[in-house]
Design a protein around this nucleic acid. Structure first.
Lengths: 251, 251
DNA sequence: CTAAACCATGACGTAACGTGAGGGTCAAGA
DNA sequence: TCTTGACCCTCACGTTACGTCATGGTTTAG
């Protein structure tokens, strides 16, 4: 069984010996063996584990989180697939940033400035589209989940842009109501709730009043949704959630 | 002129107020204005600057480095293009990691394990292919640069794999000589120098003895090359460089 | 007026190493 | 055998980029 010293491994991976010391120290990656002279001796299995650590590290996961993920499964293929999935998500994020930069360049050249929100929102970690699938899994069951995945898989970048624009418009209208002091139980708010539900229906899945009511709750009970929605404007998530609750409590 | 508070900006960007305080504190992003109540007031230009900061931050550049990059140009389009270029490099890296993971999954399923080096080298920051263009710009002039770019732009992923395999084989043979204690001024080493030059000739550009000699020097004088080559084996860069020097000093 | 949310500055703590000290081991060459 | 340079070990302080909390002023809505 061939093993490698800490320097060999560090060199191959483009990391420092100190890093490997650190990982040993915190129990993240302990060399399986030690040589007679007390030198660390890394086996192939150790190297595989390091591959996964470095993949997650590339994605800015903390070492605690990495340890947790690595302990979730003992099947090497599962572990690799999980890491692969994470890389895909980061690729998606970077592509979105790249596209936003392209738009910014275009805007500069044309003298049509982007809004502050357009410039910045892409840097958040929360992709509402991704969590729509979670919402539907929670409220719609697995058949609905599959149907949505099938429907959205064919969407182009332009489709997503349209979907986002539609949502933004509803959100802007809701914010308008809030600014004017219109109440969440008003007719105007109810109309926007209906528009919101129609939009989900159109872009994702058949959104029954029951599902929509559940979503409304989740928009304030799940911090990720709440924060994401509130990035379009303070208190939007709460207002929308309240409007949804009112809409279906009288139905 | 509309400005935004620190909380507004933080929310839009998915970062914390503390982060913006920190950036103000270190001079990386100072709000252009303050309100009468001393609240920070961020202008559109401030937001644009933040966009760039966050882009580079996404790529793990240190804040010092980010400040330096932002001060390199005052032209907004140049700045955006530069950031865009960096994003592309990171996209490339992630794609390489993804491909390596796919290979690892495949290898696991087929029971044909990857080498430790294959698992780990992709995590380094140095892409030798990218720096080949630097080498040629340094030693070959701009016509050669353009010709190479043209030639390599048509290469497929499989081409690059073949190129890499060819280089690996030459490196392995050189390491074999080193292990056997064969000297850098031996006939065997000279043959491998020739093979190395031919390979560059075949894959990149016409590699004259003069250029090759220059490359040999650079392999030890430029730390990036030296480290990259030495990841295939200790002392390889020095050995190859010495062999190249010998090869052309007697010609 | 009250309360909650937001703002300010100040300051200690944290995560993930980087850097250096001091000393042992290995391998090649003289 | 001795010397030297590269590599290894453990230990420990320092650095970077914030996170968290304290204290107190400001804004907004009820």
């Amino acid at each position: 069984m061939e093993t490698r010293t800490v320097g060999d491994v560090a060199r191959m991976a483009g990391i420092t010996v100190r890093t490997l010391h650190h990982y040993d120290e915190i129990g993240l990656l302990r060399p399986s063996e030690r040589r007679d002279n007390d030198y660390r001796a890394y086996t192939d299995a150790d190297v595989s584990r390091l591959q996964q650590i470095l993949t997650y590290r590339e994605l800015d996961l903390g070492l605690d989180e990495i340890a947790r993920l690595l302990n979730e499964t003992s099947d090497p293929v599962d572990a690799l697939r999980q890491a692969r999935h994470r890389i895909d998500r980061q690729l998606k994020k970077l592509r979105r940033i790249a596209a936003r930069l392209d738009r910014a360049i275009d805007a500069e050249l044309k003298g049509t400035p982007m809004t502050a929100y357009e410039k910045l929102e892409v840097f958040g970690d929360f992709d509402p589209n991704e969590f729509v699938t979670e919402a539907e899994a929670r409220w719609g069951g697995s058949e609905l989940f599959a149907a949505t995945a099938k429907r959205t898989s064919a969407y182009t970048s332009a489709d997503w842009k349209r979907q986002q624009a539609e949502t933004d418009e509803i959100y802007r209208a809701l914010l308008g109501l809030m600014r004017e002091g219109v109440s969440a139980d008003s007719t105007a708010a109810a109309e926007l709730v209906d528009a919101h539900r129609s939009s989900i229906d159109k872009w994702f899945y058949e959104c029954t009043p029951e599902i929509h009511a559940g979503l409304g709750e989740m928009y304030v009970s799940d911090e990720r949704f709440r924060q994401s929605i509130n990035r379009s404007g303070d208190g939007l998530a709460e207002f929308l959630s309240a409007a949804i609750a009112v809409r279906y409590s009288s139905a």
